[in-house]
């Protein structure tokens, strides 16, 4: 349930490009909205006196207090942390970057490595679920079970497919986004099309499997 007086702002997806999200947070701070957390794929903001602030995002898995202390000492205050990995910081305009002028890609390498195992797991699970459906789904449907059981079974299978595809998209897509970063032009086109292609292929494949 959404709390009254709070504002929920959709996240663009920091895996793809966090700069637009960070600019958005600056604009919202200037309009009198303070970031207080994340909820699902949305930022949660509360009314606050308008402030001129800049925001930065870093990936660091469960850092110790030294990380926060060093950031604070250089003008960057941590606002929120998500999953112990994604940290949003705020600072006064003009504060030098949290990163360095030459090694800004370091944080991407860190998170990229962390995503590799989830990507492999979700790919294997996706393949297994599809394989199981092809293997058992068809013979089962051919047995001419009662209509209601058929309906429940089909819905159940569709639910399973949506679940694994969602898992796959949320691990594979950020991973792909990091892989393609720096290859901006064609990379972005591939990414945008994947957002449409994956759900479309899922639905078509499922319908084909059920009707065939």
């Amino acid at each position: 349930m959404n709390e009254p007086n709070l504002r929920y702002e959709p996240r663009q997806g920091v895996a793809f490009d966090e700069t637009s999200d960070m600019h958005r947070l600056s604009t919202l701070a200037a309009e009198g909205w303070r970031l207080i957390g994340f909820k699902g794929l949305r930022y949660v903001l509360e009314p606050a006196p308008p402030e001129q602030l800049i925001f930065a995002l870093d990936y660091m898995y469960e850092p110790d207090e030294e990380y926060i202390a060093l950031s604070r000492a250089s003008g960057w205050e941590r606002v929120v942390t998500m999953d112990g990995l994604i940290h949003v910081f705020r600072a006064a305009p003009g504060t030098p970057t949290m990163f360095s002028t030459t090694e800004s890609q370091q944080k991407l390498q860190r998170v990229h490595r962390r995503l590799l195992v989830p990507v492999i797991v979700s790919t294997v699970v996706t393949v297994l679920v599809w394989w199981a459906m092809v293997q058992w789904g068809q013979p089962w449907r051919a047995q001419r079970e009662p209509q209601w059981l058929l309906l429940v079974g089909t819905l159940g299978m569709f639910g399973a497919v949506v679940a694994v595809q969602t898992l796959f998209v949320y691990t594979f897509m950020p991973w792909l986004a990091y892989r393609l970063r720096g290859w901006r032009g064609p990379g972005q086109v591939v990414l945008s099309s994947m957002r449409i292609v994956i759900p479309l292929v899922t639905v078509v494949a499922f319908l084909w499997l059920m009707v065939w």
Partner: peptide
Amino acid sequence: HVGPATLYT
């Protein structure tokens, strides 16, 4: 420029 995130890492 070496910022805090780069320094820590």
